[in-house]
Amino acid sequence: MFTSEIKLAAIKDYNSGIPTNTILRKYGIKGTATLYEWIKRLEIFGESGLINNSTKTRYSYSFKIKVINWRLENNESYPNTSRYFKIRNPVTIFQWEKLLSSGRLKPFKGRLIEMNNNKESLEEKLNRLEQENTYLKAKIQYMGKIKALAQRQKKCQTEKKHK
């Protein structure tokens, strides 16, 4: 929606001390979070982080699981997690989690850009898989508890109607 030139101009205005509300009105930015995200992207990725990139980066399945686990274990926000792992768009992580919870997050079968150049040893791979297994078992238990709670709540509501 915004060109990289507009993003840079807005950041330059912000850095020169112009009030945030003035910048938002001047460039038609809807919220301060957008401006702050641009500032963080500039810090992390440089000017290339502000370019609307039409090519998609493909991440390995294990990397996606690693990111999701880290976010949940550290109770972090999507923007903080995307900065930590240098993922351009925080929504990407949200989409991965949504796909995982629906059982549709699958390993990509095409050519991947590996985020981690060093090869995983067999012991590291086993450790990672054990962690993933533990996470998935906990998730299954959690989903079961939610289902049981929903059923119990529904039962209580029907009992109240019959009284």
Score class of each variant (00 low, 15 high):
S16V: 12
S102R: 14
E73D: 06
P107H: 04
I23T: 03
E159C: 09
K125D: 08
N15K: 09
E76T: 13
G144T: 07
S48T: 15
K137N: 10
T81C: 02
T20R: 11
Y36K: 07
N116Y: 11
L105R: 13
I87A: 04
S54R: 10
I51L: 15
N74G: 03
K161I: 07
K26V: 09
L72H: 07
Q131M: 09
E73I: 01
R25C: 12
Y36I: 10
G144D: 07
I140A: 13
T81Y: 01
T81Q: 00
R88E: 15
I18K: 03
S48G: 10
S121Y: 00
E43L: 01
M1I: 11
L72Q: 05
K161A: 06
L50C: 06
L105Q: 03
F108K: 11
N80Y: 15
R58G: 03
I65D: 02
L105I: 03
S60T: 13
K119D: 04
Q151F: 05
S16W: 09
N80M: 14
R104N: 13
E114Y: 11
P79I: 02
G144E: 05
T20Q: 07
T92Y: 01
A150E: 09
S16P: 15
I146Y: 12
T55G: 05
I39W: 00
G31Q: 12
D13H: 14
T32F: 11
G46C: 00
Q95F: 15
S16N: 14
S54H: 15
E76L: 15
Q157V: 04
S101Y: 13
G31L: 11
K109N: 06
N52Q: 12
S101H: 14
A150N: 05
K12Q: 13
S101W: 15
E130Y: 10
E124M: 02
P90Y: 00
T32L: 15
C156D: 09
F94Y: 11
K125Q: 08
M143Y: 08
K30R: 06
I39C: 01
I11Y: 00
W96C: 03
I51V: 05
E114F: 07
Q157P: 00
L24E: 01
E5L: 08
P107Q: 02
S102Y: 05
N80G: 14
R83L: 04
E159A: 06
